[in-house]
Design a binder for these strands. Structure first.
Lengths: 223, 223
DNA sequence: CTTGTCGAATTGTTCAACGATCCTTACGTT
DNA sequence: AACGTAAGGATCGTTGAACAATTCGACAAG
């Protein structure tokens, strides 16, 4: 039975060194080890990771295209520091992607994933683990967008949230930021679940307006 | 008057050789000089363009991230040949991005750009220049999406349309494909202009369904 | 017809080198 | 004090060469 081995095909394409380097750097950036605005020296990093400068530069190109790094000619690469305008644009995209998502009739499985993310967030909040609240919240919105059932949209959202994480890394207290939205997540899911897409969309718009306002207000990129 | 010099800022950041190489290759791919599925040899292309292999590889990474090239480890880069599944996904994204666009109240300027694209397409059709019809049509949809007023969404759409162009390059007669949509473009613009967003959205959905069906039917990636 | 083996061709990665550009500092001019 | 200039060092941009790793096709063996 040679059946459906083609499904395992993705696993076959291993990754090159440059891609693995990009994975490492992406993790480091997303966890805040490399802070927004910080310069990443080709020499020191290539030496630290034990790869050549050329390979590292290929990795830099990848992350630059994901908007995590800022490539300035002859000056090197910097961890991107989103501007206020960037934040506004990120929320414009969110309104479009999440808005389209909540208007769709959700499958049982997708809904389950969403509800689990909400539950995780509340559980983490109860345990005062605001780091976990943040990641659960991100999982929630990622799951929400996955209602569109489009790999490309999922990928776009992944990048968007990674970029948004940069914003959180320069905020003074990102923890308290998520708190007001735990309840709203529940309500939003309720509207979706009960088949009222237009109400859900309207509620979401207000949700995002609120979040955006809070975020912009607390965000000072020129700290 | 130091006013609004910040607008010229992008022009300040010149481009590296790798980026310029990427521009050239992108043009060549989009015009069909390099055909989908074709392998791009590092040696021959780097020699032909007079750049080193390392620099060319950086350019390849950029285009790979735009989904124009397919990087297969140890086998080289190939001009991407979208699958039928890819086409379906591209239309999912279009429905989301264009759908959100037509629901927005358009500015006078944006509307003018859109109408001009429609007019250009009709003019080209009258002159039997189906190449020009295709590009005008693409301009139309790009302008439509720009109603979202989001740089990131514009960029996403640009990449999406570049990818769609790959699909057209493997079709037998992409010319006749655009013809039925000239009239629909007019109608759609009319609905937007007269401030009936929901009707426009509904009409657009039908529009995209129709286009997708035609395209899938005529598309045979395994030629 | 299937499987194993060999060799050519191409990619993956590294390394060293040099010019180009930027940043800093210092110095002099107005 | 503000500005222009010059020198120096650091880092990036790009190149060319080299070698290892991998793929692919051809051909021999079973």
């Amino acid at each position: 039975m040679v059946a459906d081995l083609s499904q395992d095909r993705p696993r076959l394409g291993r990754s090159s060194t440059a891609e693995r380097v990009a994975d490492i750097l992406r993790d480091r950036i997303s966890e805040g080890f490399f802070q927004p605005g910080q310069r990443l020296s080709e020499e020191s990093i290539s030496e630290a990771l034990g790869v050549s400068r050329n390979t590292l530069r290929e990795a830099f190109r990848l992350l630059g295209h994901e908007r995590l790094l800022d490539h300035r000619l002859n000056r090197g690469v910097f961890v991107r520091l989103p501007s206020v305008e960037d934040v506004l644009d990120l929320y414009r995209v969110r309104r479009v992607l999440e808005g389209a998502a909540v208007r769709r009739k959700p499958s049982k499985e997708a809904l389950a994933v969403i509800k689990e993310a909400v539950a995780d967030a509340r559980r983490a909040a109860a345990g005062d683990d605001w780091q976990a609240v943040g990641t659960a919240n991100i999982r929630f919105h990622q799951a929400l967008v996955s209602l569109n059932e489009s790999p490309r949209i999922d990928e776009t959202m992944r990048q968007l949230l990674a970029e948004l994480r940069l914003v959180f890394h320069v905020m003074e207290n990102p923890r308290a930021f998520h708190e007001p939205f735990l309840e709203r997540n529940r309500i939003l899911v309720g509207l979706i679940e009960s088949g009222r897409p237009e109400e859900a969309a309207a509620y979401l718009d207000d949700y995002l307006d609120h979040a955006e306002r809070l975020l912009i207000h607390a965000y000072e990129p020129n700290r």
